[in-house]
Design a binder for these strands. Structure first.
Lengths: 113, 113
DNA sequence: GAAAATACATAAGATTCCGATGTATTGTAC
DNA sequence: GTACAATACATCGGAATCTTATGTATTTTC
């Protein structure tokens, strides 16, 4: 199944913040691949969506960056700032709560972990 | 908790289709109130979002309407067309699947029903 | 050495929602 | 009996966010 794109909207920031909370630092391309992996290709983040989002999170002060050279190629690592860490927790609990609400609202059968 | 608006994006059509699948027919204002009720005020659908969505679903052939007069006031009832019924099921299972995927991706602790 | 993968980025356009505004009727509280 | 809240429809400008396409360049793989 491939999700209709509108469904994924609004969750991208939360996904990015969560991945960075778990992984100390990641670079953009790595994030797209990790999400693809973890979701068995069901969610594929386009670069046109990801990079603007990363830049936005950075300018909000939630992410900090460091450049690294792999050979001649630049790689830009992102990691959470202190405020990014608390924002990450905030966003995650919001999403968890939202999912609970949607389950109630829609009578969804969601399997237990 | 009030959800950040971006989180709700992309689920409105599914919510509407599900409510109509359960309730035979509903009118716009009723939908906003029902959602508010069912979610304990956590999700409040604005009219500026709902009415265009209803019109869109109607022009896609998923909904049919009938006008009714309550005193002098017009009320527009929406109900699912045959294709609306199958679309409703489709959208619901997609959302259920998406929620599963998000749980995996984000390690969310979601309570059992 | 050609193609695929890695790795960044921007930009035009589409979609979708928010917030405000508009109109009108009906119910309620004082 | 009248002001206010609730009911009930609707549209519109603007904001936000994503899609698709494009661009540049390096590195790996076949």
């Amino acid at each position: 199944m491939i999700y209709s794109t509108e469904l994924i909207k609004g969750t991208l920031k939360t996904i990015v913040l969560k991945l960075l909370a778990d992984n100390k630092r990641m670079y953009g391309y790595e994030i797209t691949q990790r999400v693809k992996e973890l979701t068995f290709d069901k969610i594929q983040i386009s670069e046109g969506a990801l990079y603007p989002t990363l830049h936005a999170l950075e300018s909000e002060g939630l992410l900090v960056t460091e450049l690294e050279y792999i050979g001649k190629r630049v790689r830009k690592y992102y990691s959470l700032s202190p405020s990014g860490k608390s924002k990450s927790k905030e966003k995650l609990s919001e999403l968890a709560d939202f999912i609970e609400t949607m389950k109630l609202l829609l009578d969804l059968k969601v399997k237990t972990a």
